[in-house]
Computed example of a mutant assay.
Amino acid sequence: MRAPHYTLLLVTLGAVLLVSCVVSLGFGPARVPVDVVWHIVLHKLFGIGEVNWSAGQEHIVWLIRVPRMLLGALVGAGLALIGAVLQAVTRNPLADPHLLGVTSGATLGATLGAVIVVLHVGEIIGLLTLPIAAFIGALLSMLLVLVIASRQGRLDSDRLLLCGVAVSFVMMAVANTLLFLGDHRASSAVLFWMLGGLGLARWELLAIPSASVLLGLILLLGMARPLNALMAGEQTAVTLGLNARNVRFRVFLIASLMTGVLVAISGSIGFVGLMIPHIARRLVGAEHRRLLPVSALLGSVFLVWVDVAARTLIAPEDLPIGVATAAIGGLFFMGLMRKR
Rank of each mutant, 00 (worst) to 15 (best):
L291C: 05
L283I: 11
E234M: 05
G233T: 02
S150P: 08
L242G: 00
L94E: 00
A229H: 05
A175Q: 04
A114L: 07
P209S: 08
T325R: 02
I254L: 12
I125N: 14
L297Y: 08
I279S: 08
P131T: 06
I314M: 12
G273Y: 05
I218E: 09
R245I: 04
L215K: 08
L94H: 01
L336E: 01
P97E: 03
L130D: 13
A134E: 12
M275H: 09
G56K: 00
P293K: 09
P320M: 11
S212M: 12
S188L: 15
F249E: 06
G113T: 14
F27D: 03
H43K: 13
S188Q: 15
V36S: 04
S54T: 15
A201E: 09
I48C: 04
D318M: 13
I208T: 14
I265F: 14
T236A: 14
S300V: 04
L140H: 02
A95E: 02
T111N: 03
V272H: 01
V121F: 15
Q87A: 04
V102P: 13
M142V: 02
R154H: 06
S300C: 04
R2S: 11
S54Q: 13
A88C: 06
P277Q: 01
L313T: 09
L112F: 07
E234I: 07
I279T: 07
L140I: 09
T129H: 12
G72R: 09
V251W: 14
A264Q: 12
V145L: 02
V170C: 00
V165K: 00
G322I: 11
R202Y: 06
R202T: 03
G216E: 07
S210Q: 08
H5Y: 13
V19P: 05
L18I: 04
D318S: 10
I40H: 07
G270I: 07
T259C: 14
A309E: 00
H184T: 07
F169A: 14
L257V: 14
R225W: 13
V61I: 14
P209G: 10
A166R: 04
L227Y: 07
